[in-house]
Amino acid sequence: MTSLTRRSILALAGAGALAACTSRPPVPGDSGRARIDREVDDALNELYATVPGATELAAQAKGILIIPNIRKIGLIASGAYGEGALMIGPAKVDYYSISAAGIGLTIGATAFNQALFFMTEQALQDFRVSDGWELGVDAAVAFQKDGAAAGVTSTQINRPIIEVVFGQRGLIADASLAGAKYSRIVR
């Protein structure tokens, strides 16, 4: 078997795994905004049901960015993309995308959900007025690993931004979003 054939098989396997990561087929005639709204609501329900402390954290947050179904695929070089909504209280006030690209040891495909809890007015304002915002080192991270739910602890709540990654599907050797860029989109 040549290396080109091996690469082709890995690429097909990755594409198949990514296709298997989708949560549901698209609805005919569904607008982009309606699709994002529906997926955000589903992801928010999953977050509250699976991550201990998420409901309490949401009650304290000034805003929450929910990005459901972030898809990441890679074979040495990797890319990730997803679209979601910024919620202030129960209202979806803006729509955002996340995109990331990287080079390194990444093999496979995955999909997952991300929630960013903005715990201070300043953190929320900085996010809303920036163009091409990146998650900084001031963020605390909680994620589910191997099917076990990671909770949000009180030591993380003192951070201005808390990132929660949940609902992973698929298989990938690297699920980081280092260098991811968040951009406002019109829907």
Score class of each variant (00 low, 15 high):
Tyr182Gly: 00
Asp174Phe: 04
Arg33Thr: 00
Lys62Ser: 11
Glu83Trp: 03
Lys92Met: 14
Ile9Arg: 15
Arg159Gln: 12
Gly151Trp: 05
Val186Gly: 08
Val40Leu: 05
Ile107Phe: 08
Gly151Leu: 10
Ala34Met: 09
Asn158Thr: 08
Val93Asn: 06
Val51Ser: 07
Phe143Leu: 09
Ala19Trp: 10
Pro28Leu: 14
Asp30Gly: 08
Ala140Gly: 12
Ala19Gly: 13
Pro68Ala: 12
Ile36His: 06
Leu10Arg: 11
Asp94Pro: 01
Glu56Lys: 12
Gly14Ala: 14
Ser78Tyr: 06
Ser130Gly: 02
Val137Pro: 03
Ala85Met: 12
Ile76Trp: 07
Ala150Ile: 00
Thr120Asn: 01
Ala20Arg: 03
Trp133Gly: 07
Gly136Met: 06
Glu163Phe: 12
Leu171Glu: 03
Ala111Val: 01
Ala180Phe: 10
Gly82Glu: 03
Leu124Asp: 03
Arg6Tyr: 12
Gly136Ile: 10
Ser23Arg: 15
Ala111Trp: 02
Leu135Glu: 08
Arg184Asp: 04
Leu171Asn: 00
Gly63Asp: 04
Thr155Tyr: 06
Gln60Glu: 09
Ala77Leu: 01
Ala150Met: 06
Val165Gln: 05
Arg159Met: 15
Ala17Glu: 13
Phe127Thr: 01
Thr120Trp: 01
Ala61Asn: 07
Arg38Ala: 14
Tyr95Lys: 06
Val129Asp: 14
Leu177Thr: 02
Ala20Cys: 04
Gln144Val: 14
Ala180Ser: 10
Ser3Gly: 04
Phe112Gln: 09
Glu134Lys: 15
Gly79Pro: 00
Arg184Phe: 04
Pro68Leu: 08
Ala148Gln: 11
Arg169His: 09
Gly147Ser: 14
Ser78Gly: 07
Ser3Gln: 10
Ile185Cys: 07
Ile76Met: 11
Val141Asn: 11
Arg187Ile: 11
